[in-house]
Amino acid sequence: MKCLSNEKILGYLEKSLNNVEYSLTRDHILSCDKCKSTLRNFELLEGVLEEPSLIEPPGEIEKYVMAKLFPKFSHVASLVTLIAASFMLLIAGIYIYFDFANDSMIQAFQLTKNQATSIISSIVKFVSLVFSSLFAIFKAINTLLEVLLNIKIGVEVTGLIFAFILIMLSYLIYNKVFIKIRDSRQN
């Protein structure tokens, strides 16, 4: 009696044979020790394959993915941005209200000193200091551009260019330095 092919035995095991083939295969297996043994080996193999032996993945996978998708750093960055934006708004507000451009800074300071609390007074003092320092820098750059390159763009435009360069620099520093530090910590 010729033994069954492995394919037939596997088909029998997976119940993928038609009714006639299935019965014939079953009858053969019952009377053939070699095919019975082959079936038993395939059964054991099937049982083992169905319960895969899994390697434990490195623990940092989940941590890395969570940090990448939900970075904690962004909360800090948003908070800093919010504070900076509020501060800028405050400066702009005070600037517009007291019309610093027309040299009424001292007058404004006097007003706040007499009528408002010391906190507001200090804020105005600080803002006026920042404003005058920035204004001095813009004026200097403007003069330098005018003398060296004969370019007349005005203090306000110089200020805008200066602010743009500052924002770009901050963005670069954020990307290159902070994200690198964060990634190296996560790895």
């Binding site: 492995n6 596997l10 082959t38 080996n41 193999l45």
Partner: peptide, 16 residues
Amino acid sequence: KEILKMEMLKNEMFKQ
């Protein structure tokens, strides 16, 4: 599966 069974038989993990 045939290859796996053969390997296991070759290494006497399964009985012929």
